[in-house]
Amino acid sequence: MKSASLEQMMADMNNGTYDLTCNGECTQCGNCCSNLLPMTEDEITTIHKHIKKHRIKEHRHNYPTATPTMDMTCPFLNDDKSKEKHEIYSVRPRICREFICCPSKRPPIDDWGYKLKCKTVDVRKEFFK
């Protein structure tokens, strides 16, 4: 990687622009996976059924620290896989299916009916506590 690219990447991160795509296409790196997500009740129910059927376990991403930390990474993110790292990939919520970290390629979710049905979900608490 050229230093100019590294400098640009650091500048993008500092100003809140995260584009980890390759030519605007998702690289399935998993860096956008979060523990707090907007979901509908139907999505929550579908995910509950899927994790029960497939006996999916929680993934932790914490590194040992002197003080307790919160793992804000999605508990379904499996870093051991190179692609489709999400353990519930086939039933992942709409926000995960449609999100892309390249701002110019990201379509807005203009579906107000969908937005109004969503609630912010603590994924770890909802599915594993």
Rank of each mutant, 00 (worst) to 15 (best):
F127I: 03
A11D: 15
K125E: 06
C29T: 06
S34G: 03
L36C: 09
D110P: 00
D79W: 09
W112D: 09
N78D: 15
T45Q: 09
P38I: 08
C102A: 14
C29K: 03
H48D: 12
N23H: 11
G16A: 08
T69I: 05
F128L: 00
K2W: 11
M9G: 14
L36H: 10
W112T: 12
L77K: 00
N78Y: 09
R97W: 04
P107V: 12
Y18I: 14
D12T: 03
D79T: 13
V91N: 08
F128E: 01
K81C: 10
Y114V: 00
G113I: 00
L20G: 15
R97S: 10
C118N: 02
M39P: 04
E84N: 11
F99D: 11
H54Y: 13
N15Y: 12
M72G: 07
L6G: 12
C118Q: 05
D42F: 09
C102P: 01
I56H: 03
P103W: 01
D79G: 09
H50R: 03
T73Q: 02
M10F: 15
H86M: 12
K83Y: 12
T67S: 04
K115S: 04
S3D: 14
C29Q: 06
E58K: 12
T73H: 05
D122Q: 03
L20R: 09
N14S: 08
L20E: 14
K52G: 03
G16P: 02
E84L: 00
E25F: 11
C101G: 02
H48E: 13
C32P: 04
N78W: 07
P75T: 10
Q28M: 11
I44P: 06
P68Y: 01
R94A: 11
